[in-house]
């Protein structure tokens, strides 16, 4: 059975991984290579690497550093930021990306998606839509939320599907960095309108938020900040989903079963006798 994907987003600004709050404030996190390696070790299902400065500073995507970043990435890697041409896509895929993410170019130039799909196949192209709710309507934005397209998110998603996009990545600007949960209404509106897989992003604060989003039937649930700040965050979030709604891939060395996560999303302390026996457990790393 196909699993719901838990996706880690790595946002890059000026070469550094950052935490984004409402698409307006940014806090430094650290090196992209290390962030990717850790997400990979903790059993993330997919990684989306977005270079925020490419479009705003009007330069092509930086494939030069990509090889370095993806050295320890044994899960699918989608890369976005500054893609304008088929050559940009080609360079990224050759440089270590498995898929490309199109955002700012799409509304003015939807044919870039159909041209990309013609060459790399539909499954390779993700259209990312930054959504902001205005007067009760979800509107699509580009350029890191700075520019409105004047179109609704659903219209944009449909246009992406018509042009042969393989997936839609929905990023809620309102929920970004708020830790209040995903915008499930946004996910549902787009899910009902198109037949291609949907990924929802923005607002993850505690593991149960992932479970709520997974239950809506989206194909992927994505988060950035959530994964960067807590040890084994991917494993604990996935364990919680397995315990509640099920159907995610949980395939790592570390185990947190049963999850025993408190309402605040933090792991609860295990009884002393359990910890006592754990102290002497040695699990050698498997050599492939």
């Amino acid at each position: 059975m196909l699993k719901t994907r838990i996706i880690g987003v790595v946002l890059i600004k000026e070469g550094l991984v950052v935490q984004s709050i409402g698409f307006a404030r940014y806090l430094p996190v650290g090196s992209p290579t290390i962030a990717i390696e850790y997400l990979n070790r903790w059993g993330i299902d997919e990684i989306v690497l977005l270079d925020m400065t490419a479009t705003t500073s009007n330069r092509p995507p930086q494939d030069r550093n990509l090889k370095e970043h993806c050295k320890f990435c044994h899960v699918p890697l989608a890369v976005g930021g500054g893609i304008r041409t088929i050559d940009d896509m080609s360079a990224l895929i050759r440089g270590g990306a498995d898929k490309v993410v199109i955002n700012s170019t799409f509304p003015d130039n939807p044919s870039i998606v159909s041209k990309g799909a013609e060459k790399f196949g539909d499954q390779c192209i993700i259209v990312s839509i930054d959504a902001r709710k205005i007067d009760g309507k979800y509107m699509a934005f580009t350029h890191s939320g700075a520019k409105t397209t004047g179109k609704t998110v659903v219209e944009t998603a449909k246009l992406a599907e018509e042009n042969g996009a393989g997936e839609v990545f929905l990023n809620s600007i309102d929920n970004d960095g708020m830790k209040t949960g995903f915008d499930l209404e946004l996910a549902e509106a787009v899910r009902a309108a198109v037949d291609i897989p949907i990924i929802i992003c923005g607002g993850a604060g505690i593991p149960s938020h992932f479970a709520q989003a997974a239950a809506t039937g989206v194909s992927g649930v994505a988060a950035a900040n959530f994964f960067h700040y807590t040890e084994h965050s991917v494993i604990t979030a996935k364990t919680h989903i397995v315990d509640t709604v099920g159907n995610v891939r949980l395939d790592t060395y570390a185990e947190y079963t049963p999850s025993q996560i408190g309402d605040d999303g933090r792991l609860l302390k295990l009884p002393d006798n359990v910890l006592e026996s754990l102290r002497f457990e040695y699990i050698p790393e498997e050599v492939i």
């Binding site: 059975m1 196909l2 699993k3 719901t4 994907r5 299902d45 539909d122 499954q123 393989g166 997936e167 037949d195 291609i196 897989p197 194909s219 992927g220 891939r249």
Partner: peptide, 15 residues
């Protein structure tokens, strides 16, 4: 076959 409410592409982890 995209019938039966399946989403295509088939993307993700499957056993």
């Amino acid at each position: 076959d995209a019938a039966k409410g399946l989403r295509v592409p088939h993307v993700g982890w499957n056993n």
